[in-house]
């Protein structure tokens, strides 16, 4: 069980590193795809099979494809990505911010597992029916709001993509 975590955790970290470091656009997207799939595998381990499938279907199957589609539209196949930010302050602050975040959280969460002990999950945890129960009962308002958000995004996307604004 531990091995499972380590394999996919290291996979996701390496792929994430590749995503932000790659010189080519499409390989970078492939790195992100690997991250998504590794995380989906971790979700399976965390009793969230439905989310794992959604992760693949929505993130990898829709969102990333959309990004890749735009990539194919806007860039030429041989095109290399420009190097990192020229602005040193951005570059420095970015690196600093990221590294600090990693370090801080890692240090800060030391011993968290002692605080939140792992309870056994109940039978049927994470399966579609339970998910649906919660989703359409307790979170119905949120659901509706999100659907409106999606509608707005849809209309906005279509409007912004018009030839003449």
């Amino acid at each position: 069980m531990d091995l499972y975590f380590w394999v996919f955790a290291s996979m996701s970290v390496l792929a994430g590193l590749f995503t932000i470091a790659a010189r080519d656009a499409l390989p970078s997207a492939m790195g992100l795809l690997t991250v998504f799939i590794a995380l989906a595998s971790l979700y399976l381990h965390l009793h969230a099979p439905l989310l794992a499938i959604f992760q693949v279907a929505i993130y990898a199957g829709a969102i990333l494809i959309l990004i890749v589609f735009v990539m194919m539209l806007l860039m030429a196949p041989g095109e290399r990505l420009s190097a990192i930010q020229a602005n040193v302050s951005y570059r420095g602050s970015g690196a600093l911010l990221g590294l600090c975040l990693i370090g801080l959280v890692a240090v800060g969460t030391k011993g968290v597992s002692n605080i939140v002990s792992m309870k056994g999950v109940p039978e049927g945890f994470g399966n579609p029916s339970m998910f649906g129960d919660l989703f359409f009962r307790d979170f119905l308002l949120h659901f509706e709001v999100v659907s409106v958000l999606l509608l707005v995004a849809l209309i906005g996307g279509i409007y912004l993509c018009k030839k003449k604004l």
Partner: peptide, 12 residues
């Protein structure tokens, strides 16, 4: 998250 943040700040 940190990787994402680094990428966001440093890539063009």
């Amino acid at each position: 998250f940190g990787l994402g943040a680094i990428g966001f700040c440093t890539r063009r």
